[in-house]
Design a protein around this nucleic acid. Structure first.
Lengths: 235, 235
DNA sequence: ACATGAATTCTTGTCGACAAAAAAAATACA
DNA sequence: TGTATTTTTTTTGTCGACAAGAATTCATGT
């Protein structure tokens, strides 16, 4: 019973416990350290973090309303399963949001946005160089979230962020099976996207976002399921 | 101190308290019975519903993670304000989702979907006839949610549902100022949308969804703020 | 009268304990 | 041996109480 993961600390500030538990559990779920379907025990978490069940419970409620854990009434809380049946729907939404956010970024970006986006791209490039799949997935999501932020639409950004989160779990499964190698083409496409946003070329941004999204769908879709995203043509 | 709204009941089933409080508070917030910015007191709610603070707290956490209430750490919880600065962003997203959900409904609808959609339209039409603004807003949202359900994409449906909820509060403000009258044109447009979905005319569905959305944006936007939704042309 | 600081109040955050519901284990019976 | 029923265990849901933080009030000194 020697758990190497000793997270409890002696002194904590008043409202910080929930956020810490929430953030940590969220990361562990999205990185598949907590596999889908695995049980989540409140008292176990309470003792692990050295606090009462109340703040643990609050963190779990938050995760639940984001769909990351599922809770059967009066019985068993578990990490939410990945719904592979809904993957075509997921990819449809993902591609559309790639397009919309990239497009809006080209419209509304300011000078300071470009520096932030480039910083995320540097991190992504580094993760690709290091062949660190977890880091690749996380930094890729951060890159596109940054672009969405430059688009200045919090509704799209929120929805897109949620999609990217869900995607982290699916992508993790995908890249595990491909030996943590990711085509360097993604790095180049990111560069093209940045260039289009910089020169405020809305049409190119839209097109690149679409191609980039369909690229990923194509690779994963070939592996897991057929998709119908290509049929949707908003013209 | 004679509160006419006595909600506490003697016997409740084990897990039902949170859901009841959540549903009721949610409705009261969306119908502006609890005005934006008004304080939300836990112990007051606890005594009102005749239960402890714990389930109240859980309901509030849920509402908080949906953005319906805002909570300052250690101090004051309040009903979330309506962010009028973000309304252009909101309308952009709303119009796009009108298009996408109507379009997908035309693609994927089954026979049984049409009956459900028509049922919502009957309710909407009745609300318009009765000049009941609250009911109009709610049934209109239900109508479009039903269409989104027929589109068979839970990601879009979830996001759209959230947008429609946020819209309920804004629309309420709008219709108050227009004496609870709503153009009967909306009823006719709904009929056209149903017809397009029935004959699986994807292009018409997309177009009608767009026109219908921009219609609403136009009316409200003229009253409250200028919008830039029309600039986005996904062609 | 006014600023400064102490005491009070008010609300939230956390805790430990108990009750209810469901599952698992144990027992009784054919 | 297999099945139905009772008992135990496990985990969640709810409660009342207390502590911490922030705002308000009150007191004190100049």
């Amino acid at each position: 019973m020697s758990d190497p993961d000793q997270n409890q600390v002696g002194e904590r500030k008043r409202g910080s416990g929930v956020k810490m538990v929430y953030d940590l559990l969220r990361d562990e779920i999205l990185d598949l350290k907590l596999p889908p379907g695995s049980a989540v025990d409140e008292v176990q978490l309470a003792s692990r973090f050295g606090m009462s069940r109340t703040p643990i419970r609050e963190a779990l409620v938050r995760l639940s309303s984001e769909g990351l854990i599922e809770t059967l009434p009066n019985r068993s809380t578990m990490v939410a399963n990945i719904d592979f049946l809904n993957m075509p729907s997921y990819f449809d939404a993902l591609v559309l949001m790639y397009r919309v956010t990239t497009r809006l970024a080209a419209q509304h970006r300011r000078a300071e946005d470009l520096a932030l986006i480039r910083a995320r791209q540097v991190e992504f490039s580094a993760a690709v160089g290091a062949q660190d799949a977890l880091a690749m997935i996380a930094t890729n999501a951060a890159f596109h979230s940054q672009i969405a932020a430059a688009g200045r639409n919090s509704y799209y950004a929120g929805f897109f962020g949620r999609l990217l989160n869900d995607g982290r779990r699916m992508l993790r499964l995908y890249y595990q099976s491909y030996e943590d190698r990711l085509p360097s083409r993604f790095v180049e496409e990111h560069e093209e996207i940045i260039a289009a946003i910089e020169r405020k070329d809305v049409g190119a941004a839209d097109h690149l976002g679409r191609v980039h999204g369909e690229q990923i769908v194509e690779q994963i879709g070939r592996l897991l399921t057929r998709h119908e995203a290509a049929e949707i043509d908003l013209s």
